[in-house]
């Protein structure tokens, strides 16, 4: 018994030591977003330990942020509509831009959106779109719209994101409605549309849908542009489509939670990421739409020539954003529970 107590004491002391490791920054970020290498480089350069946790949807980010004690996280990366919600809920604080030397690197086209018009609380990190991608070796038809996917010959061939707003939004767009429609009849139609589509769906996955396309588990995907681009590097037969009915886009942002304990380190991290060459490493590893002007100079041809990753500013502006719909989210929840 004494030995056990001794062991416990030693362990507690040991864990105490590793915990008190002076400088840390607690980051809550999307899974598959910043390569390990960038984090390690930051740790080496500044001597700050990065505690990295991940989420796979904006809702999960909100849940984690609001259920954890204030001060648990120092930096988060929510998308547009979630920024708006977090400002309303008083979860994030104003960014002191004077702390950031690399501020001017940000592409001004991606500032001043309605969700945070003066960018008081958020700064764009990168932008994403949801694209349709298919394997032209297996799918001989020309797919141009979401409705094409209902064809029964694509049984078990489709991978969708595990994201209720994006998927239900896609159904609404396919039916000619707005992707943020909250009319219960329209949602009913969307549900039926999705139930029909589900016959063809192999899986819902937000974390790594590219794996399904690379391993040829599926031949059609409606997935994040970076995932599509990565899949295209492995499988040259993949074709990208921006569907005729519309597509959803999002801008992911840096945001600092209220009560962040290591706020200076969070600023250091943001500034580090905003460096042209650092962002280049991130963008090349996870080829989303780059919103850093400095980085644009370093990007490889592979990135620039890929239609999925390098979507033009003009094209991006035709996409629709997910918007906050208040308590109507319950209707979406129900549709989601029903189609799953």
């Amino acid at each position: 018994m004494k030995k056990i107590i001794l062991c416990i004491t030693i362990l507690l002391i040991l864990t105490g030591c590793t915990q008190d490791n002076n400088e840390v920054v607690n980051i809550l970020n999307w899974s598959s977003y910043i390569p390990d290498e960038v984090i390690r480089d930051f740790e080496k350069e500044y001597g700050i330990k990065v505690n990295y946790s991940t989420y796979s949807s904006n809702e999960e980010c909100l849940a984690k942020l609001s259920s954890a004690k204030e001060g648990t996280y120092d930096l988060v990366f929510p998308s547009d509509y979630m920024i708006e919600l977090m400002i309303k809920r008083n979860l994030i604080q104003k960014i002191d831009k004077s702390n950031l030397d690399n501020l001017e690197n940000i592409n001004y086209n991606y500032l001043s959106y309605n969700y945070d018009y003066y960018n008081d609380y958020s700064l764009p990190f990168l932008a994403a779109s949801v694209v349709l991608v298919y394997d032209s070796e297996k799918i001989k038809d020309d797919i141009t719209s979401y409705n094409d996917l209902l064809d029964s010959k694509y049984k078990g061939e489709i991978i969708l994101l595990d994201d209720q707003r994006v998927v239900i939004g896609m159904a609404l767009m396919a039916l000619g409605y707005d992707m943020n429609d909250t009319d219960s009849d329209h949602l009913e139609e969307a549900k039926d549309w999705l139930l029909k589509l589900k016959e063809n769906v192999k899986a819902f996955d937000s974390d790594s849908p590219k794996t399904f396309m690379i391993s040829k588990e599926t031949s059609i995907g409606v997935i994040w542009n970076a995932e599509a681009a990565l899949a295209m590097e492995e499988n040259k037969n993949l074709k990208v489509v921006y569907p005729s009915e519309g597509f959803s886009v999002s801008i992911d942002n840096f945001a600092i939670p209220k009560g962040a304990k290591n706020i200076d380190n969070a600023y250091l991290f943001i500034d580090y990421i905003l460096e042209g060459e650092v962002m280049q490493k991130i963008i090349e590893a996870y080829p989303y739409k780059n919103v850093n002007l400095e980085t644009q100079n370093y990007l490889s041809d592979t990135y620039l020539n890929n239609d999925a990753s390098n979507i033009s500013d003009l094209m991006f502006s035709t996409g629709s954003f997910v918007e906050n719909i208040g308590d109507k989210i319950e209707l979406y929840d129900k549709v989601w529970a029903e189609i799953k």
């Binding site: 056990i4 507690l12 864990t15």
Partner: peptide, 13 residues
């Protein structure tokens, strides 16, 4: 390992 050893020690006690 930390979590398992510490929690096992305390719960065994």
């Amino acid at each position: 390992i930390i979590v398992s050893v510490v929690s096992t020690g305390i719960s065994t006690f």
